[in-house]
Amino acid sequence: MVLSEGVKERLGVVVDIVQTTFHWGFVPMVLYLGFSKGAEPGMPPLSLLSLLWQ
């Protein structure tokens, strides 16, 4: 596959943005999914502190 320099440059920017988003967004996304699922029924609700201690 041959790409011209201009296309490569623009693609590079897109890949960089995707990469950075993934890099810093992945763990927060996992945390968000976990928190949005919530605690088990009958258990106290989750808070940010419950990441560290009860």
């Binding site: 945390l31 999914l33 976990g34 928190f35 699922k37 919530g38 605690a39 088990e40 258990m43 989750l46 419950s50 990441l51 560290l52």
Partner: peptide, 12 residues
């Protein structure tokens, strides 16, 4: 390891 729920666990 800290299990926050059946679907969610964190570790330090």
């Amino acid at each position: 390891n800290k299990g926050l729920s059946n679907h969610f666990q964190v570790s330090h």
